[in-house]
């Protein structure tokens, strides 16, 4: 009897995880559907003008506010790209050095230090980006005659890239270590040097797995909130220039929801539509990325 009761409790606990997922999906879809009653899906996904502010006045709900999310998607992509340009080479090369060259002692120091980078709260990165990096980049730009916006995509992306280095390096490290030594020996036995072996045998064998890791990193960058809220722009700006200020999906969610307003104005509902888009994008990236990583982590077991 007790046995069955405990089993029932355990089972219901495990169902909580399912309820959370259902809760997320249901709340996002429900609120987003209400949003799409006033704004067409087509305008949301393909519109290039984002100015939700004008919808603040109650008598104009949805009428004059523009909810074309393309500038947000482009801004998110731009900042994520900058972040990836920083973190992918640094992360992968760190992983190569750690797994192929570093002594055990060096490894035992460097790995925890990299973990620290991953453990620093994002709000701290945000502060750092806004207070240190952004002004520095702006001044640097000015000194060489380039106009760098104070809230440039570059500053936010750069700091976000640093945040993602440990994610990429630890996944790459796992994947590179999973490449069997017999391949390295085969190559060295043919007279290849160490770096030739790494570049022409180890890396090609690890590449798909590393790519999976990069997908996970992109997902993290896309969903990252605090760095961009603090260091990126607040107003939509459709541009591919990393020196200009752009805004992102997550920034707009925060901007739309942190004022004092009624719960069901188009502005609030738009945040849920953005949330739904964010959830879908990161979900797809995560599922594909983690499948690939899993496969290549275990392929030689």
């Amino acid at each position: 009897m007790v046995e069955r009761l405990i089993r029932a409790i355990l089972f219901s606990c495990s169902a909580v995880a399912i309820f959370i997922t259902i809760g997320i999906i249901a709340s996002l879809i429900f609120e987003a559907l209400r949003f799409f009653q006033s704004v067409s899906v087509f305008e949301f996904l393909f519109g290039t003008e984002w100015s939700p502010q004008t919808a603040l006045r109650a008598d104009q709900v949805g009428a004059s506010g523009r909810f074309g999310a393309v500038p947000l998607f482009v801004g998110t992509a731009l900042i994520s790209t900058v972040a990836l340009c920083v973190s992918a080479p640094l992360g992968i090369f760190s992983a190569i050095y750690l797994s192929e060259y570093a002594s055990d002692t060096l490894r035992s120091y460097v790995k925890p230090l990299l973990e620290i980078l991953a453990g620093i709260p994002t709000v701290v990165y945000g502060f750092f980006a806004a207070i240190v990096i952004a002004p520095a980049l702006s001044n640097l730009g000015a000194s060489i005659g380039l106009e760098v916006a104070y809230e440039s995509a570059l500053a936010a992306g750069l700091v976000m890239g640093v945040m993602i280095i440990p994610l990429i390096s630890s996944i790459s490290d796992d994947i590179i270590t999973a490449v069997p030594d017999s391949l390295r020996e085969g190559s060295r036995g043919l007279g290849a040097t160490k770096s030739e072996t790494i570049r022409r045998v180890v890396l090609p064998a690890a590449l798909p797995g590393i790519a999976g890791g990069i997908l996970l990193a992109i997902s993290r960058a896309v969903g990252e909130t605090m760095i961009v809220v603090m260091a990126a722009g607040l107003s939509a700006n459709l541009t591919f220039n990393p020196l200009e200020a752009v805004t992102t999906v997550t920034v707009q969610i925060v901007v739309l929801l942190t004022g004092d307003q009624e719960f069901d104005s188009s502005k609030t509902l738009a945040a849920f539509a953005l949330g739904l888009a964010l959830f879908c994008i990161t979900m797809v990236l995560n599922v594909i990325g983690s499948q690939i990583v899993k496969k290549y982590r275990e392929q030689y077991d």
């Binding site: 809760g23 996002l28 949330g275 599922v287």
Partner: peptide
Amino acid sequence: NNLAAVPSITFGLLGLAI
């Protein structure tokens, strides 16, 4: 596993709505 990788802001949206 998927929940572990969902952006944290999404949980905030869930909290707000529910």
